[in-house]
């Protein structure tokens, strides 16, 4: 499994300024990777290019052993005409009932399955949305701030469980939380500030798994490394 990008350039049709400029990187083997950087540097644009949602870019995106790419994002909604549980049932492929139940339990969603989507808090909305993506067949799932508004402790539980449940899948997690990406992610693609000349680089995260023992010194070093890359 390999995701490679070479000399990517992309400018939105209604803009003259390129949002992605000469970006090259590669990520190998499955794992929970991150994209990190300040707002407006092109993280979402990159995600959409990889997911095949934005045509008209130059450069190359090579996905070896990755057939299905899904892109999920913060503020997605479920239809409002029935309860969220009902919607979840409808999009759960055959044979994934157990996985669904397990995810519902990990994501702490049991009590809200009867409710309409619009009645949920933003954190609950993002969680139920992510669950339905995790139930689909995919090789690479891009999570564009998909856990925004979820409290920190639950977020960590969710990420560690995802890593545990889907060891053969690749994830690209777009987040603004430095501690989270430094500790929980494997490869961190760091976007430098547009004003600077640092470009992009891949920094190795601590890639903690369930039951990890935090090592403050190494974590601080990784965080510093990421900050310097920005």
């Amino acid at each position: 499994m390999r995701l490679e990008c070479y000399n990517l350039n992309y400018t939105y049709p209604d803009s003259e300024v390129p949002v992605i400029r000469d970006l090259s990187f590669s990520m190998e083997t499955p794992g929970f990777n991150a994209v990190f950087g300040p707002s407006g540097v092109g993280k979402t644009s990159l995600a959409k290019l990889i997911a095949g949602m934005e045509p008209g870019f130059s450069g190359k995106i090579i996905t070896t052993g990755i057939d299905t790419i899904l892109y999920s994002y913060n503020l997605e909604r479920l239809p409002g005409w029935s309860g969220t549980g009902n919607h979840l049932d409808k999009v759960t492929p055959d044979g994934k009932q157990q996985l669904k139940d397990r995810l519902i339990s990990i994501f702490e969603l049991k009590n809200i399955l009867e409710s309409r989507f619009s009645k949920l808090s933003m954190g609950q909305q993002n969680r139920i949305n992510l669950v339905r993506y995790l139930l689909q067949d995919f090789d690479l799932l891009i999570m564009d701030e998909s856990l925004a508004n979820v409290d920190e402790k639950l977020r960590e539980t969710i990420i560690l469980s995802i890593k545990d449940l889907f060891p053969a899948k690749m994830f690209l997690y777009i987040s603004h939380n430095l501690m989270e990406v430094s500790g929980l992610c494997r490869d961190v693609l760091v976007f430098g500030k547009p004003s600077g000349n640092k470009g992009c680089s891949i920094i190795g995260g601590r890639d903690y798994t369930k039951g990890y023992q935090p090592d403050k010194e190494t974590l601080d070093r990784t965080m510093l490394e990421i900050m310097n890359a920005i």
């Binding site: 997911a51 949602m53 899904l70 503020l75 997605e76 479920l78 239809p79 999009v91 689909q136």
Partner: peptide, 20 residues
């Protein structure tokens, strides 16, 4: 924001689109 999931997972049908 609602249709995206159904499109990217290949689940979108015209009836669902109209309903949404």
């Amino acid at each position: 924001d609602i249709e995206h999931f159904y499109i990217i997972t290949g689940r979108m049908r015209w009836q669902l689109e109209v309903k949404i």
